[in-house]
Amino acid sequence: MFYGTDLTSRLMLGTAQYPSPAVLAEAIAASGTQVITVSLRREGPGGAGFRDLVAASGCRVLPNTAGCHSVSEAVTTARMAREVFATDWIKLEVIGHADTLQPDPFATVEAARILCDEGFEVFPYTTDDLIVGEKLIEAGCRVLMPWGAPIGSGQGLSDVGALRRMRAHFDGVPLVIDAGLGAPSEAARAMELGFDAVLLNTAVARAGDPVAMARAFGQAVAAGRAAHGAGLMEPRDMAAPSTPVFGLAVL
């Protein structure tokens, strides 16, 4: 449950960098996603034409504060997003470094506190740091969005150990892997680890065929989630034949 909303599809899609709004609409449909993120910072109030096309998808919109580098920018953008999209949901992104797009954890926590106090339902983009995660929960967040790898890098889950610890530590808190995924197998892996959803953009938008890639990610996320629910076997050091070998003739 994400702030009281249950989602059947656990894939969230970004809407930037597609060849056209028409391709984006097809990709959304093919992926089966129910939640799309839309940025506001750069397009501003003049982006209504694009937003109308996005709204026509029927998906729930998770506005984001992409491109914000300070608490005040992020808070202002969030308030504007609330007006424009008529939703309390906000994906909070406060970037600490323009080149790596690494989140600024201090500013993110501060902005999260302000926004939660104003009744926003905040989805904070964060690292896999447990203490930062705790501070965000303390600030009022009821979802966390740790990165898999730096935004747009396509490196997948670059620190699986840290993500496992995060999953174990925040038992019961919805965790969404946000950013860095390149291949559907990585999305499936995130779901197998017990994460509640994945959010991605570049891997689909910039694929040779974004619609086919969106479908592939949708299937991978569904498969990973089903596998987690079914209970994965633990890896073993020795081979363990699935049929008994005892008594076979030795030739």
């Binding site: 750069r42 501003g44 109030p45 003049g46 982006g47 034409g49």
Partner: peptide, 13 residues
């Protein structure tokens, strides 16, 4: 390439 219909001068960014 910005999805916007704002006229006006080029932005600093």
């Amino acid at each position: 390439m910005v999805e916007s219909d704002l006229t006006g001068p080029v932005t600093a960014r």
